[in-house]
């Protein structure tokens, strides 16, 4: 038991990023509100970023800045650098999705998927 908890503590970043991932996915999956969907998407992305950054983390390490006379362990800067790109991408996806939602809102006056289906008439499955 304690062993398991200890391992969980050591890998808490991974564990919680997975939990976040599931929460995000669930939000995306179950909400009809398009904005909430996008929020879910963001949570999901964030969980992956957390995961990625956690890979490069060294316990007790410092920011990898060249300083005179430093003898510390550095964290791996590569995942952070990569994730910066990932964040940029996520931001642009979010922004784009939001602008699409704005357009949808302009067409229908609502951001609820079910409502949109109803407004469009025809088949409300």
């Amino acid at each position: 038991m304690t062993d398991t908890l200890l391992r969980l503590h050591q890998n808490s970043y991974y564990f919680f990023s997975i939990v976040l991932f599931i929460i995000g996915f669930h939000t995306m999956l179950t909400h009809n509100n398009l904005i909430k969907k996008i929020i879910g998407m963001n949570i999901m992305d964030t969980s992956i970023f957390l995961f990625f950054v956690a890979i490069g983390y060294v316990r007790g390490g410092r920011a990898p800045i060249l300083e005179p006379g430093a003898g510390h362990a550095y964290i791996n800067p590569l995942p952070s650098a990569l994730i910066l790109t990932g964040i940029v991408v996520a931001v642009s996806v979010t922004a784009y999705a939001l602008s699409l939602v704005v357009k949808l809102y302009r067409h229908y006056g609502t951001i609820d998927a079910e409502e949109i289906m109803r407004l469009r008439g025809g088949e409300t499955l």
Binding site: F21, F25, M28, L34, K37, I38, M41, M44, D45, I48, F51, F52, I55, P79, G86, V89, V93, Y96, A97, L100, V101, K103, L104, H107, I116
Partner: peptide
């Protein structure tokens, strides 16, 4: 717009999977 939104969300999830795999 609707089709693009649907595509965007699904492909964003796809990208998420891809990124996780890369991680």
């Amino acid at each position: 717009v609707e089709a693009a939104f649907k595509y965007l969300v699904l492909s964003a999830v796809g990208s998420g999977c891809l990124l996780l795999a890369i991680a």
